[in-house]
Nucleic acid binder design. Structure first.
Lengths: 225, 225
DNA sequence: TTATCTTTGTTTTTTTAATAACAACATAAA
DNA sequence: TTTATGTTGTTATTAAAAAAACAAAGATAA
């Protein structure tokens, strides 16, 4: 085509591999790399070495280079990686071009913390609704997010094209809420309630249990030295 | 020059060597088993099979049996595991006999959610103080936990024999707080702020980043087929 | 020029975690 | 009694993740 123009950026995309095979842990790290790369970028840093990224995240430079290799990006010898380019490529991998909408179920302390947390965080990932069964909370707007009653769950999920839900309800309600979310056609669930929930095979489920994390810290802290 | 970004020099990569023979993931699962075993016990169930535990946690019975083997417990053929005995043994493994005290740093929405979450949850793991730098919050008691000013951090950690801290402060304060915690002689830290913090080798650090979890769900939800 | 140093990109090896396989054995049924 | 069934405990195998090893190449200095 334009062989004389086929420089580095051309090669970059030749190396690109199928992204559907990206390992779990690599996806997690890419998300974290991006967040800190954006801070570096905001401070005017143009290039970054693998060992700098590694230091921020307490991992080895090899791990960083391997992750970056997996998404097919190529840095410059002696200069490292171009921060803006790397951020853009991670975005191509992680984000859906048309964006994804998120609902938070349960507007208690955890739910409100999540709303504040995610406010304006990602352009392609927006919290567009919250749900609660406490009548006093209905209609209130936290961090730009309106709280709706749970009986409108399905309708609003469909209307607002919500594909991802975060469960932050008391543990006894988690199972019922999950069924409602499945029924409403949700595609991914992040469950913060401490009891595991059941979803059909086609829905992606991620569970995180704070109590377990604390007990794990307690165990390893007591067994150190 | 770029104070946030990592320096150029290589630093020693801390090789988190485990002092215990129990695998990381097994510790996590034991914590979860116990929680659900306690519910079973409360319902009067005396024995439980590995496949029942497995169903609750969406894992295989083999995994359950293997974990239980690792802590040296033995069930009964045809009857399964004695619930009370298993709970007691997991307690011996995970808990410190004299108990461990916990502080929550940051009494915002997340901090308050954590206080409610952990209230009366474990006999051997008690949240005994919270800290915040907002004068209006000082002295307030959430979920039985008093909020102290951050400048009393070290004194109260020592006085109340606190060995574990949960960081739930805004991201920019996390590094300072971490240094204060290290200085106060903390043994384990659970960091919920989205930026990794640095601690010396002898302190156990666990980090959890909600934004990463959400982006991971978004990635795998969009790539599911 | 040549040698040296630094950093990337990729392959190989090691470690950790999960799954599969199966012997042993208690109980129930034939 | 003998056979079938279901469950545990353990070993063997596979898969996933991390770390190590090292070639290649650009920059710098002698």
């Amino acid at each position: 085509m334009f062989p004389h123009c086929a420089g580095k950026s051309f090669r970059k995309y030749q190396n690109q591999k199928k992204m559907s095979t990206l390992p779990d842990k690599t996806v997690e790290r890419l998300s974290q790399y991006r967040r800190n790369l954006l801070i570096c970028d905001a401070k005017g840093k143009e290039h970054i070495f693998s060992h700098e990224i590694a230091n921020i995240h307490h991992i080895t430079p090899v791990q960083v280079r391997r992750d970056i290799m997996l998404i097919g990006y190529t840095g410059t010898l002696r200069k490292g990686y171009n921060v803006k380019e790397l951020v853009a490529l991670i975005g191509e991998i992680l984000d859906k071009p048309e964006g994804q909408n998120v609902a938070i179920i349960g507007a208690g302390n955890l739910g409100r913390a999540l709303m504040k947390y995610f406010k304006n965080r990602r352009e392609k990932l927006s919290v567009v609704a919250a749900f609660d069964n406490n009548p006093e909370k209905i209609g209130i707007i936290y961090a730009n997010v309106e709280v709706f009653p749970i009986n409108q769950l399905k309708q609003i999920i469909i209307d607002k094209k919500i594909s991802i839900a975060i469960i932050s309800v008391p543990v006894d309600e988690a199972a019922t809420i999950t069924n409602a979310l499945v029924d409403a056609g949700i595609q991914g669930i992040l469950n913060f309630s401490p009891r595991p929930v059941n979803v059909p095979e086609h829905i992606y489920l991620e569970e995180y249990d704070m109590i377990t994390s604390l007990e794990k810290v307690a165990y390893f802290a007591k067994n150190k030295n």
